[in-house]
Design a protein around this nucleic acid. Structure first.
Lengths: 122, 122, 122, 122
DNA sequence: GTGGTCTAGACCACT
DNA sequence: GTGGTCTAGACCACC
């Protein structure tokens, strides 16, 4: 409930990330049913079309599948989820290290930075 | 010396990052003159307006200052640069840790990931 | 509804002033929607880019905020508006008194001048 | 001798204002000799062309006149100076009141503002 | 229909 | 040759 969308990133992508992350985190597992498009739309105060777009994208990634009448379910196997999780982590990490190297940080400095932030966010 | 722009991020922001990073890395220091708008436009194959937009943004960050007829110069003091570098690093790190935590990584796993990527990028 | 732009000041700044003043005067209040970039461009006979530049500047001043698909809205609170109004008035007054002092006017003379002009403009 | 030029206004106009104001203030009177272009250029650290442009403008306003070999002199009569001073003051005052009216100030508020600033600048 | 970005190219004042 | 401004007009993603 209550969620602030940033206006830099398309809402449908922010919404996608919310559910994708629930799956990658293991909170939603194979066979689990997702809330309906209408429910989500209400809950997040967005247009149903926007939710639809986010969900179609998840279908396309083969994380979920919509069963015509009964709703939308997680279909990805644990292995596939683990793989996607690894890929996502790698991609995030590559972006990050590229950025900090570009401003001249070294490995040690970066490591310390991560640990400091980690504490702070706990 | 050419350069590949990704199409997810506006060119002007990518251009901004190139020069901002040169300053944050200490390659360009206070008093140094930046190439002219037209030079950059030619070199990177973009429209002068796009360069102009990137540079205005750097002026606004008080990293540079344009001298109407003689060019654009770095004006930020070393202290200010150090501060901005720190802020940039923190912001990048916050984004990153938030992302990996969202997909369930722990500190140890993250640390290892960073080190692995660091090797790979060397 | 047309409008005459002076050619000493960039059009985008004059346009900025028009809308900024509407907000500072209280004609546009928090939550109000501004006309679209294209509407303004038509109405004032300028290029949409010019309007865009003026409006981006208002966003930067945190008077307005653009909602990617629905338009641009006034976001400044009444307090913030009152503050900006005060600052603007002070800045205008400082410039003015500096100018008249530079040509040797005294306070009394200045006061009379203001009152005379005020009548005249009524 | 130390002077900060703003980069929003052409230097030659800022320079012009310095000398024009000396005349309008009565510090320089009819018959007085102005410093040479070269002296001014050195003193203010600007290009002699820039000084030349400012002075030509003053000649054009019939405030000064250059005597081929002996230098440049104030030629305006006291009446003419008084007139220009009045005009300048009126123009400054019109701009100012227009601005403050645009943001909704009343005469009383404006009068108080002026008095406050006047104190402050004393 | 909304804002945002970009190109191509012109023009201007200033030094 | 420098930065700054502006036009005309296109294209894009989003909702």
């Amino acid at each position: 409930m209550s969620f602030e969308f940033s206006n830099e990133t398309p809402i449908y992508l922010q919404l996608l990330a919310v559910f994708r992350d629930q799956i990658l985190r293991g909170e939603l597992v194979r066979g689990d049913k997702l809330p309906s498009v209408r429910e989500i739309a209400l809950e997040y105060g967005v247009n149903p079309n926007t939710v639809q777009k986010a969900f179609s994208e998840m279908d396309r990634m083969e994380l979920t599948q919509s069963e015509r009448t009964s709703g939308r379910f997680v279909i990805a196997s644990d292995e596939r989820i683990a793989l996607l999780r690894k890929e996502q982590a790698l991609s995030d990490a590559r972006d990050f290290t590229e950025r900090v190297r570009a401003i001249g940080l070294g490995l040690t400095e970066t490591r310390e930075l991560i640990e400091q932030i980690w504490e702070e966010q706990k």
